[in-house]
Design a protein around this nucleic acid. Structure first.
Length: 511
RNA sequence: GGGCCCGUAGUUCAGCUGGUUAGAACACGCCGCUCAUAACGGUGUAGUCGCAGGUUCGAAUCCUGCCGGGCCUACCA
């Protein structure tokens, strides 16, 4: 089942014009869970995140605040780095598009595309709205104005173009040959119908601002931010050195996780750029959904972007990580509400799982001299429960491979439920008086189930899992998925004093 | 305008290659337990499956129309 095949996963690089919020946290945590899962499953993982730092907006924002673009960028990039630390993200690398390694790679890719005749110099003309900062097509205009109602003017600009139009058929062939290249299904259909509708050549340079990577040989132009940004996925692997260990090991990427807003860039432009440069396209681009907050869209006017720090301060890190992945089918939109988070935290984490661990550990502590009890002879209910635990990794692995985080967690929680039922049925507190040997078999069974649960939950809630594994005295080296089958708890091992893992969230009384 | 998706218990959703009394979780009622984070377990109430037609021996599940909601429909993130 397991394999040591390399696994390369990326978050989008986050635009430094924004401050980190719930949406960034979501994408990043989802990637982190997959990265951790694959590592625990024995795979060689490279997990990349970073920041996108060029473009007109950054240049303007910097000017507005009276700092240089580089200063602004340094400051805001740090914010995303801190978010990763705050969320206990296990990224192996953090790339910034202002780093020399990236700039060098982007220019090399440009030259490669140029050498292959994929780039030409032409004129870009269209109706430009200064207010919207956007060009519009003739047929998009309404009464000679932008769809937004803004005034437009005819602008012509010398631009380099990428021959995207030439790639329509090859893109479609790529989607056909790789049904999983774009997920979920609905998104794939959207992308394909978009491409079938015909592709225009893409303007890939700008002369109206300067905060960007200069076009090799024509520094009046800077490279279009998306061509700049997307390439981070390979410059982080050492491109243009295609023989490097990193590049040859980890490319093509197994998964680019993106928000649905930037799917097109990843599912159309990016594969086209890569193929045009003679490189392999990614194995999968997955577009996840959006969160609303208390039923409302996150927006600048409502100013309801929740900073990750606030979430963690309020609920604790692991409950937030759990909630984000448990609450809705990955790929769908969902609502982030205080009520829902508290429901998950108190119901799933504190009552079901946390309390299960607590009741079992306390009984062992009191009735077994705080040592892992001797299993002795096991009865049918014991082996049934243990079988359920032993079968669980396979189920979870299947769900994770389909990125169905919610189903993975749901299947883990089914075992939590079975274990709680088993406790009630076996009533070890009764056995402690009448049949101590039987009690030990029951408590050993439960401890083993806890060990399975703790290890399976590690990718989702690394801190809490660690606490539980510490309380079970599971050695550091026996905390991966291989250890599930090969390193059962050893009778007689001394256990520390039990401590709650998931405290209940108690509402502050309103005043 | 064109394309795609959704509308099922109070709530969030599953079921939808048509076929026994439409399921789960949460919430709510009752019962049990007392090891445990006033936690756990059992059990019950609850739905004209958006509306109207049609196909079929039989439709939540297929077809048509309507109503309601969402997404996509190319460049400065």
């Amino acid at each position: 089942m397991t394999s040591d095949r390399p696994f390369f996963i990326t978050t989008p690089i986050y635009y430094v014009n924004d401050l980190p919020h719930l949406g960034h946290a979501y994408t990043t945590v989802a990637c982190d869970v997959l990265a951790r899962f694959m590592r625990l499953d024995g795979r060689r993982v490279r997990f990349l995140t970073g920041t996108d730092e060029h473009g007109q907006k950054v240049e303007q924002s910097a000017r507005a605040v009276g700092v240089s673009p580089q200063e602004l960028t340094d400051r805001n990039s740090t914010g995303f780095r801190e978010m990763a630390r705050l969320l206990d993200i296990s990224n192996d690398d953090f790339i910034r598009t202002t780093e020399p390694r990236h700039i060098r790679g982007v220019q090399a890719l440009w030259q490669e595309l140029e050498r292959r005749g994929e780039i030409y110099l032409g004129n870009f003309a269209g109706w430009y709205s200064v207010r919207d900062e956007a060009f519009y097509d003739e047929n998009e205009l309404v009464d000679g104005k932008a769809p937004s109602g803004a005034d437009v003017e005819w602008l012509e600009e010398e631009n380099y173009f990428f021959r995207l139009s030439a790639w329509q058929d090859r893109l479609l062939a790529y989607y056909e040959a790789n049904p999983d290249a774009i997920a979920p299904r609905g998104r794939r259909n959207e992308v394909m119908s978009f491409v079938r509708g015909g592709l225009r050549d893409l303007s890939i340079s700008r002369t109206s601002f300067s905060w960007g990577i200069p076009v090799p040989g024509n520094p009046k132009h800077v490279i279009y931010v998306w061509l700049d940004a997307l390439v981070n996925y390979i410059t982080a692997l050492g491109y243009p050195d295609r023989e490097s260990y990193d590049f040859s090991t980890f490319w093509p990427a197994d998964l680019h996780m993106v928000g649905k807003d930037i799917l097109r860039f990843h599912a159309v432009y990016w594969p086209a750029f890569l193929m045009a440069a003679g490189l392999e396209p990614p194995r999968c681009v997955f577009a996840h959904g959006w969160w609303t907050v208390e039923g409302q869209k996150m927006s600048k006017s409502l100013n309801n972007f929740i900073p990750p720090k606030q979430l963690v301060d309020t609920y604790g890190l692991d409950p937030v990580r759990y909630f984000l992945l448990r609450e809705l089918p990955f790929g769908s939109d969902g609502d982030f509400s205080h009520r829902a988070v508290v429901g998950r935290l108190n119901g799933d984490l504190a009552n079901d799982f946390g309390n299960l661990a607590q009741r079992v550990l306390v009984m062992i502590n009191r009735n077994c001299e705080a040592r892992v009890p001797e299993a002795g002879a096991l009865d049918a209910p014991d082996t049934a429960l243990l079988e359920a635990a032993r079968g669980l990794p396979k189920t979870v692995r299947t769900h994770i491979s389909e990125r169905a985080f919610h189903l993975a967690l749901e299947s883990i929680w089914r075992l939590v439920g079975e274990a709680n039922r088993y406790v009630d049925e076996q009533a070890p507190w009764v056995l402690s008086r009448s049949e101590p040997e039987r009690m030990r078999a029951v408590l050993y069974t439960l401890a083993e189930v806890l060990r399975h649960l703790a290890i399976l939950v590690e990718p989702f809630m690394p801190g809490s899992a660690r606490k539980l594994l510490d309380q079970l005295a599971v050695p550091e080296a026996s905390r991966d998925f291989a250890a599930l089958a090969h390193a059962p708890l050893v009778a007689g091992t001394q256990l520390p004093k039990p401590e709650g893992i998931f405290p209940r969230f108690v509402e502050e009384p309103a005043d």
